[in-house]
Design a protein around this nucleic acid. Structure first.
Lengths: 147, 147
DNA sequence: ATAAAGTCTACTATTTCTATATACTTTGTA
DNA sequence: TACAAAGTATATAGAAATAGTAGACTTTAT
């Protein structure tokens, strides 16, 4: 499962994506709009800023905005920045690799081999989908409900 | 990430799969072979027995064995029995569905929509792969290293 | 009878996650 | 220039999940 941190980050980026190119948005506004605890969101957005995908502006009229076009922010990146797991086993992770404590021979481990396939399948979706795609999907879902 | 419980369960089932049709295997032997804490493994195997995929035999000469052919035990099932997550979001899980606390409209949530795709991709691999497949992969990996 | 195995329940320790608190800095504007 | 609006930074607390351990009990083969 994704952590709440990752989920909140995705939701916030979607909101920010909808306002790309406009004036920065305040944390409190995003928090209210997406039902996210404000103080928690502060930390998350700060992280995202420090990793370079958001800019911020202090003081009155300040807030956060996307540095890049939402079409260029892919979900893998967000998961990785917020520490969310892509792989289901540490020994199969590209960015957070760790040997499994109990494992005797990683090179011949059949379990590992299958979860490499799982990781690749997951990664394909997450690395092909951007924040802009999520926004598109939302508008499709909204319109198809409406009529 | 999979829990250790799930990992240990998979490893144990692979060992048991290799001995399918033969005399039952002792917990202590599986634990030793796979570097799994014995007491922890006891609980896990007991769970798997109570859910019907293993049989057990008490007393001297006792132990555990697979009820079904390893070719008929698929990884999805093991993950679900051991509580491991398949979906990355609760609102997208088939067997452990939960509404996301913060979510305002599930039906039009773009994040959810993407993670439905992710779930389907993952599920495809996990529901097509059996314990027997893992054993096959292991022998392929072992032989390709050997020569 | 005894020893080898599994059964069952409870408990504890550790870690990770989620959230909150507090004090500080920058910036716009009255 | 004071003040308020915003983000910055770090620490800490609380909660939940995970991992592992302990101990007493039951069944079965010899």
């Amino acid at each position: 499962m994704l952590s709440k941190k990752t989920r909140y980050a995705l939701k916030a980026l979607v909101v920010l994506g909808k306002h790309f190119g406009q004036a920065p948005l305040q944390i409190s506004r995003i928090a209210a709009e997406e039902n996210i605890p404000k103080k928690f969101l502060e930390q998350i957005l700060l992280d995202l800023r420090n990793s370079g995908i958001l800019f911020s502006k202090k003081g009155s009229g300040g807030g956060y905005g996307l540095v890049k076009d939402p079409a260029e922010i892919f979900l893998v990146q967000v998961l990785r920045l917020t520490g969310g797991p892509v792989a289901l086993l540490p020994c199969v992770s590209l960015n957070f690799y760790q040997k499994c404590d109990e494992c005797i021979n990683e090179g011949t481990c059949g379990v590992r081999d299958v979860f490499l396939d799982v990781r690749n399948a997951t990664l394909k979706v997450l690395s092909e989908t951007s924040i802009a795609d999520i926004i598109k999907r939302e508008s499709i879902l909204t319109n198809s409900v409406g009529g």
